[in-house]
């Protein structure tokens, strides 16, 4: 082993330590019987029990899971269609604008997405009467908008790696476009769609800023509850919650990675 590669390995290990030490700390503290981080008084599940008996947190968690599932599904439908079109439609009118609009939510800070969509909902309500007030529905629409680009890019990348001979062959044999889509294209991109759905789900479950803007009274999501109690000072119950969510997300990410490595790479590159 050369001196340079040893330096790189040590640096990498330290870097991963920096990324994982705080996470390990939270997981360890969630099983600590003492409420303080600085005292270890034995292993205990008391914070998990207390979490189970916190109606505000559990209710927000259920709401957030619902929002995440709905917005991920919507983002997958829209982003999937956009991804297929981008990979297979060739040149079409306004393609540059289309690609630009798809990419915009990828680069914008959440704050801008949230504020702009809130103003849209208010303007829409003033003109058409819909949506009357804001709540779960508007959060779902906003989250779907923020994450559909991830699905589109994942699907596009998957299709770009496959030439369209299968689709051509099916069409030559008399399949209508709808049958080509259903029997050929969709099965080909199924892994990308699944991975995209999982990523959209994760993004929604982690968002506090967009939901704060586009939500309304009675639509408090789990990250919003966590955020406001973190401002006051985190409680040990949050360590337990963090550990559970971490396990969920790591599991989902592992699944996405198994299904389609390119998707889990974030496609932000």
């Amino acid at each position: 082993m050369t001196r340079r590669s040893r330096f790189l390995s040590v640096w990498l290990i330290c870097g991963l330590g920096f990324l994982y030490a705080p996470i390990a700390l939270v997981v360890a503290m969630s099983f600590n019987a003492a409420p303080m981080m600085t005292v270890w008084s034995g292993a205990s599940l008391r914070w998990y029990v207390q979490l189970w008996h916190s109606p505000a947190l559990m209710e927000a968690a259920a709401r957030s899971l619902g929002i995440a599932a709905a917005s991920a599904t919507l983002a997958t439908l829209l982003g999937g269609a956009a991804g297929i079109a981008l990979a297979r439609a060739g040149a079409f009118r306004g393609r540059a604008l289309f690609e630009g609009l798809i990419a915009v939510p990828l680069v914008l800070p959440d704050l801008l997405i949230g504020l702009a969509l809130l103003l849209l909902f208010i303007a829409l309500e003033a003109v058409t009467g819909w949506p009357s007030g804001r709540g779960v529905t508007t959060i779902i629409l906003a989250h779907a908008t923020a994450s559909l680009a991830f699905v589109a890019i994942t699907v596009r990348a998957r299709l770009a790696g496959l030439d369209d001979t299968l689709e051509q062959a099916a069409a030559d044999l008399g399949a209508t476009p709808l049958i080509v889509l259903r029997r050929i294209t969709l099965p080909l991109i199924a892994p990308a769609l699944a991975a995209g759905w999982l990523l959209a789900f994760t993004l929604s479950l982690d968002d506090v800023v967009i939901a704060s803007f586009t939500g309304g009274p009675g639509a408090t999501t789990l990250p919003m509850v966590i955020f406001s109690s973190m401002r006051l000072g985190p409680t040990p119950v949050l360590n337990a919650l963090a550990t559970l969510i971490l396990a969920l997300v790591a599991g989902l990410l592992l699944a996405a990675w198994k299904i389609a490595p390119v998707a889990a790479r974030g496609t932000r590159d």
Partner: peptide, 10 residues
């Protein structure tokens, strides 16, 4: 991907 809030708790 594991949640910005949760990592800030630490």
């Amino acid at each position: 991907w594991s949640g910005i809030l949760l990592r800030l708790i630490a």
